[in-house]
Design a protein around this nucleic acid. Structure first.
Length: 554
RNA sequence: GCCCCCAUAGCUCAGGGGAUAGAGCACUGCCCUCCGGAGGCAGGGGCGGCAGUUCGAAUCUGCCUGGGGGCACCA
């Protein structure tokens, strides 16, 4: 029995008891209200319900009495071994081994599909992340969003979401000009411009541009040469970025060019739409969007008094474009240095008549500090001291890098010590989880070689303490995925997998799948093989959502 | 001045109101007669401060302190 099935039955019992008592909650109870939790202290049972305590106060009832009423109903559920009321009104439920163990077979039978849900069934989701300017190699700060964003996309897909991974390619701004001038300066052997970029990569890109140009660069005017460096340099840089992201396991469905918005007249259409909605006004020769109507600190200039489009106009047009492409939910992942955008973007959403937080959602993630021997590494594109995605992957490998970046909340700043990761790879818990998976595979093959197979399944025999615990952890997987999706927090999956790996290792330590010596193969061994394989399946499914390999051997 | 994020073990971080606050790494001591010791067991050590809400607060609210980031007709 899965916790979800138990919850559903609990809900029916609670409703029946309340009706009998003539007590009606203000709003009908849902499955979420009767969600079970796994007690930290396993002596409290397999699952605990706090619904009696939640309901007692608003209904003016005694929590323990209420709990006792619920408990009587729960006792009658098939597969429940015992029910106790404890403390202020906890209902502690213990399943019998057969009901708990049945989960192992469910998991094996569902295989890769186990854990999937329907939270976002058929919902079109546009997930925009990374979107680094092609003025240099992608640095480690952007890599955090690559790892988290890609994982989140997988998590949404596992909930039925129709996800598009999108990269907003800013090829319109002044930064691109600075990039071009930096290349040009390198070509002429001049120092990098004051506001430009330096570093080895500039010289390398310059060489590639020169090599690819089938004409005489030297014969061009400085302006024309700069244009060659701009167009060709951006192409090379962008190609490099795509490649390194691909090598990192992240592939985007759409690379959207900002230029397209300006050249297609999309900006004008967006402004017209907003004007029709009554949110545009003119002042000091500029065109403004009245974002203060929707809670922004100040109104925003959309078209500058010189007639040029302000930066936000691209965002307006881009948002409208996404909506016109049919995306119901648009999520943008940005770094903490962009949090100031959130209010104006939400105001803009409202101005279009959409719902902020639903049609547009902006996730702000905190910065990654790269440390070296305990000291922060100062990164500057200008100085060329950037720690890149390639550097990170080269140092620790894709799996360790992705795992390290995805295992903590994006609300927290993250310190990554490169030397630590290189020196002691065990520092990264990814190996703990991967090792557990490799072990399930090894144990499984060894068992099969010894004549153990899955021809019998006797879950009532899974009575060992560590088996009960392992089954309990396996039972949480589905809910963890829903939480990760709802909260946009894939790190929960990583933490869960670490817990599962621990539960597995402890089980392995005390329960054999393969008979000892000349002992005969029994149904207990066969049943344990199901449990072993179920664990391997969940570890594999979970790692897959993080974009990390689940190796059969290490 | 205003806005966002953070403060939990020696270090890096989990803990979306619940019972005795966890993991990895580091440290100490145990466990190899057979399924992978990249493992298991045991131990030390922690919620920045003050109020409030609640039967119950690491979690919610306010204030304070400390750290990071941001507040353009720049992009």
């Amino acid at each position: 029995m899965t916790p979800a099935q138990l919850s559903a039955q609990l809900l029916a019992i609670v409703n029946a008891v309340l009706e009998r008592r003539g007590a009606t909650p203000k709003t009908p109870l849902t499955l979420a209200d009767v969600e079970l939790e796994r007690p930290k202290n396993r002596e409290h049972g397999d699952w605990a319900a706090n619904i009696a305590m939640k309901l007692a106060k608003p209904l003016g009832l005694n929590p323990r009495e209420l709990a006792a009423d619920f408990a009587a109903g729960i006792k009658a559920i098939d597969g429940v071994a015992s029910v106790d009321v404890a403390g202020p009104g906890f209902i502690n439920i213990r399943l019998d081994a057969a009901a708990a163990g049945a989960l192992a077979k469910t998991i094996v039978e569902q295989g890769e599909a186990f854990g999937r849900g329907t939270l976002y069934d058929g919902v079109t989701i546009n997930l925009e992340f990374v979107s680094a300017n092609p003025t240099g190699p992608i640095h480690i700060g952007g890599v955090r969003w690559a790892a988290v964003g890609d994982s989140l996309a997988r998590v949404f897909q596992a909930q039925g979401g129709l996800v598009t991974r999108e990269y907003y390619f800013n090829d319109h701004g002044a930064q691109i000009d600075r990039f071009a001038r930096s290349l040009l300066a390198s070509y002429f052997g001049e120092p990098a411009p004051e506001d430009g970029y330096a570093g080895q990569y500039i010289s390398e890109i310059k060489d590639r541009v020169v090599g690819a140009y089938d004409g005489d660069l030297a014969a061009l005017s400085r302006e024309d040469a700069q244009e060659v460096f701009r167009a060709s340099g951006v192409d090379f840089m962008f190609g490099d970025i795509k490649q390194s992201l691909h090598d990192f396991g992240v592939d985007f469905d759409v690379y959207f060019h900002e230029n397209e918005l300006h050249e297609s007249g999309a900006v004008g259409r967006a402004v017209t739409r907003l004007r029709d909605n009554g949110h545009i006004f003119e002042n000091d020769g500029a065109t403004w969007l009245r974002t203060t109507t929707f809670g922004d600190d100040k109104d925003r200039v959309v078209i500058k008094s010189d007639g040029e489009a302000a930066y936000i106009s691209g965002d307006l047009a881009y948002y409208l474009n996404k909506r016109e492409r049919g995306f119901e939910r648009n999520i943008i992942m940005l770094g903490a240095d962009h949090h100031g955008y959130v209010r104006r973007m939400m105001a803009m959403t409202s101005a279009f008549g959409d719902v902020p937080g639903v049609n547009l959602e902006i996730m702000i993630g905190q910065m990654v500090n790269v440390m070296r021997d305990g000291e922060p590494v100062r990164m500057s594109k200008r100085a060329g001291t950037v720690v890149t995605l390639e550097d990170l992957v080269e140092a620790v490998g894709v799996d360790a890098a992705r795992y390290a970046l995805v295992r903590s909340s994006t609300d927290s700043q993250l310190d990554i010590d490169l030397d630590l990761l290189v020196r002691r790879t065990n520092d990264n818990p990814v190996f703990y989880v991967q090792y557990a998976h490799a072990r399930t595979h090894s144990v499984g093959s060894k068992a099969v070689a010894s004549g153990v197979d899955r021809s019998a399944f006797a879950p009532e025999m899974l009575t060992h303490e560590t088996e009960n615990n392992l089954l309990g952890v396996l039972g949480e997987y589905t809910r963890v995925l829903v939480q990760a999706a709802e909260l946009r927090e894939p790190h929960r999956i990583a933490r869960y997998l670490e817990e599962l790996a621990g539960a597995y290792h402890r089980w392995y330590d005390s329960c054999r799948v393969t008979p000892l010596g000349e002992d005969p193969v029994t149904d207990l061994h066969r049943t344990r093989l199901w449990l072993n394989d179920a664990t391997g399946q969940v570890l594999s499914n979970g790692l897959g959502l993080l974009g990390v390999c689940a190796p059969d051997r290490m």
